[in-house]
């Protein structure tokens, strides 16, 4: 595709994005906000999966840490919301280092299982430490985000806040992946002995990526807390971790921008399916299984193959 056409397409996309809140119902905008949050959180998991080949089922833990940090800091301590964001990301980073350093020595299934165990431990602690998290009753009254007095108190406003942040982190991630760290990660994933010989400190790289993933999860969690104003343990379960993992799987793990597609899938498909009545959860599971089975490269891979097929037909 030549440069002009590409730029034009990009412009159209941006226009569509910008105009969406004016055309769509509030309910759909709400879903798009969630899709934005999941893009941020899912990106972290996607980087670990796509670039490092690591299955991370602990993202709900860091999502929760970000949410609870923001909630606790603004509601109990009365400090400005930026403090909450920073506290959350700091706590997540520290925990990611402390836990990641030993755990990332594991590989494959064992690592996946360890991260799942982390998610569960996190869930139990969120329940138990109700002096911090409010337990089942949760923490309410979280103030909406405001910057210089401009309050983000409607879904439309949060939409215009969340997506630029999502695009920003996607850009940074894309940069990372195309640069030397990305090369090092892929070397580590595809030919570990060679990478080691070339002096790639694999363990440090893995831990660094785990920390980045945790911080992205925390960022998404903090934004979530300020958006919904009330959080409770039920939002930070193993199911949430699985949902975060689904995002890069559905998208096609190696794609950075494809995370958007994965996040949209995870947000909108359950909504679509709920029209079918009580069987909707079964259908969602089946849809997931079908994507994994039929589209090993995810939706992006599938779209790619379709594009190539069409190109061949037309040539």
């Amino acid at each position: 595709m030549n440069k002009l056409r590409r730029s034009l397409l990009l412009l159209l996309l941006v226009l569509a994005w910008a105009l969406a809140p004016l055309l769509l119902s509030r309910h759909l905008i709400d879903l798009f906000v969630f899709a934005g949050l999941f893009t941020i959180g899912g990106l972290g998991v996607g980087l670990l999966l796509g670039q490092c080949g690591i299955v991370n089922l602990a993202q709900a833990l860091f999502y929760g840490i970000g949410a609870y940090s923001s909630a606790y800091v603004t509601v109990q301590l009365g400090l400005p919301s930026l403090t909450g964001f920073l506290a959350g990301m700091l706590a997540s980073a520290l925990i990611a280092i402390a836990v990641g350093w030993p755990v990332l020595r594991l590989t494959g299934f064992f690592l996946a299982l360890a991260t799942l165990a982390l998610s569960l431990i996190g869930n139990v602690l969120f329940f138990e430490w109700d002096w911090l998290t409010g337990g089942t009753l949760g923490i309410g009254g979280i103030p909406k985000l405001s910057i210089f007095g401009f309050a983000f108190d409607t879904p439309e406003r949060v939409y215009y806040l969340v997506w630029p942040i999502a695009i920003l982190v996607l850009l940074l991630a894309d940069n990372l992946v195309r640069g030397r760290p990305g090369l090092a990660m892929r070397a580590m994933r595809d030919a570990a002995p060679a990478a080691e010989v070339l002096g790639v400190d694999m363990h440090r790289l893995k831990t660094a990526m785990f920390v980045i993933c945790a911080m992205l999860g925390s960022l998404a969690g903090s934004l979530f807390a300020h958006y919904v104003s009330y959080i409770s343990v039920q939002s930070f379960t193993v199911e949430r971790s699985i949902a975060f993992l689904l995002i890069p799987v559905v998208a096609g793990s190696a794609s950075v921008w494809g995370i958007i597609a994965g996040a949209l899938f995870v947000t909108f498909i359950p909504e679509l399916l709920s029209g079918f009545g009580d069987i909707h959860q079964v259908l969602f599971g089946l849809a997931l299984v079908l994507v994994v089975t039929l589209l090993p490269d995810g939706l992006i891979g599938g779209a790619d193959r379709l594009a190539q097929l069409l190109k061949r037909r037309m040539a």
Binding site: L49, G53, F109, A112, I242, G285, L286, L288, V292
Partner: peptide, 15 residues
């Protein structure tokens, strides 16, 4: 790959 099978069985468990 390995992770695809893991995700398959997770998806089946949920279903």
């Amino acid at each position: 790959g390995e992770e695809s099978f893991l995700l398959l069985t997770i998806g089946l468990a949920v279903t």
